[in-house]
Write a protein that binds this DNA or RNA. Sequence first.
DNA 1: CGTCAAATTGATCGACTTCAATGCTCGTGG
DNA 2: CCACGAGCATTGAAGTCGATCAATTTGACG
Lengths: 266, 266
Amino acid sequence: MRDSMQVQDRQAHAVCLPPVVTSNGHTSDNMARLMQLLGVDAHDGRAHGSPVPITVQRVGAGEPLYQEGAQARAIFIVQAGTFKTFRSSDDGYEQVVGFAGRGEVLGFDALSLGLHPTCAVALDESSVYVLSLTALYSLAERAPALDRSLLMAMSSQLQRFADLVGLKSAVSAEARLGRFLLQYAQGMMSQGQSSRRLYLRMTRRDIASYLGITHETVSRAFTNLVRARYVSVARREIEILDIDGLKACARSTRRRFEAPGLTASH
Amino acid sequence: MRDSMQVQDRQAHAVCLPPVVTSNGHTSDNMARLMQLLGVDAHDGRAHGSPVPITVQRVGAGEPLYQEGAQARAIFIVQAGTFKTFRSSDDGYEQVVGFAGRGEVLGFDALSLGLHPTCAVALDESSVYVLSLTALYSLAERAPALDRSLLMAMSSQLQRFADLVGLKSAVSAEARLGRFLLQYAQGMMSQGQSSRRLYLRMTRRDIASYLGITHETVSRAFTNLVRARYVSVARREIEILDIDGLKACARSTRRRFEAPGLTASH
DNA sequence: CGTCAAATTGATCGACTTCAATGCTCGTGG
DNA sequence: CCACGAGCATTGAAGTCGATCAATTTGACG
């Protein structure tokens, strides 16, 4: 009962990334620097040379990293695997507010109240670096550079939330899904993986909750994107066929989805 | 040409707030502590005793504090007035991502890239404390307590974004508006003002953009809330008549708005 | 007083939701 | 080994809320 699907080469050269992208200047360089500053080594999971005490914690697929409302004890940096974070409404509806892959930080939102306002569960076999709050708060004197990096990581999260807020306003289902796929592809790329072939780790329901639509609409949007020849979809395996078309689709604000020059293909 | 509307007692005991709420444990205590730590004094706007250099900047109604894409030079703490922050789409659509009143911090989202991803404009005569980035980055050694407070302020913003994301999913227009009003009322309360009588500083269009609906729908939602006797509305002056009813309305996820036992009152 | 933007209200239309049925994959146990 | 069930995913049909277009009113300001 190891990994349920083909996840190859996970332990090889995980942290010692090359300078990564730096082209579009996204968060990846922050993350790379963050992990460098942590001084962690993915080979054994130990933190030698790190100015702060870091431990590693494994989280099985489907298991929670922390529960909603739980006391905050630490923040976490994803070493491997994927997480979803969500809040539960009174009526039991799960509102997904984000997905986190390798190098991303979980638990920032708990700093202000000391309680986790969200719940984080692993979507597959995962592991995280654990930075206790006491260690975090003593970072300022011990490792100002790391402190700065954490500030920037938080700032990145603010930006991504602003993106999400914009996505949820006046955008068609196809555009939302297109943006999600592009964002996901970029996340894969910043991890050094292929950005054309994607394997979605989350269910349609999770995607739907994240995008603010129903899972049926997500499904229909997928078929529309396939009909437009932007992507090919086989269950959770996605291949991006026409990235420019997909970007154009994702860029389109306002309603109405226009497929390119094909009228009806029954 | 002072204040265009009845904003009373602004200079009196602005910073030395009492312990404020602490009941629902919201951000207000953070903010109060933040301003205490800044060592600023609202009477003269100077910062004596502050471990870091703080200046004050006035921003006229309708003027921008910073533009979208501008180089980030500082972060700002609102001393007086109100701001809206928004991003402009390619087609010119203004996506409002937040409103900021006294004690709230603007510019955090620019830390990661060094450029402001959003634009902030004052909704009325306003002023801000300016904390330059160089000062911010030297805070760790000079004033670790302030550094921690800024971390918490950022964390609060993350929480509020998560709220907004949840609001934009599967919630009726009336519920969205109800949540907005409650949030706004709480913001007023944390500033020591009345939470029953509100004066909205922003247009219906701004509210609509923030809530992810059109301004016509905002207008209709207002009339529905009035018909339900939850609030009374006179242009931008709002009075909350039935806070429990409003909360119940705001809590309702999923569609369908039910007005309490009144069928037709023509 | 005239102009302009904000705000309200109405009518129509469409995209998404909702309810419902079917396929599909995978894990469990007969 | 195959049947069975459970969750995920896809597709269809009908209803609805909000978007859109449009007209009117109100208020602010020169």
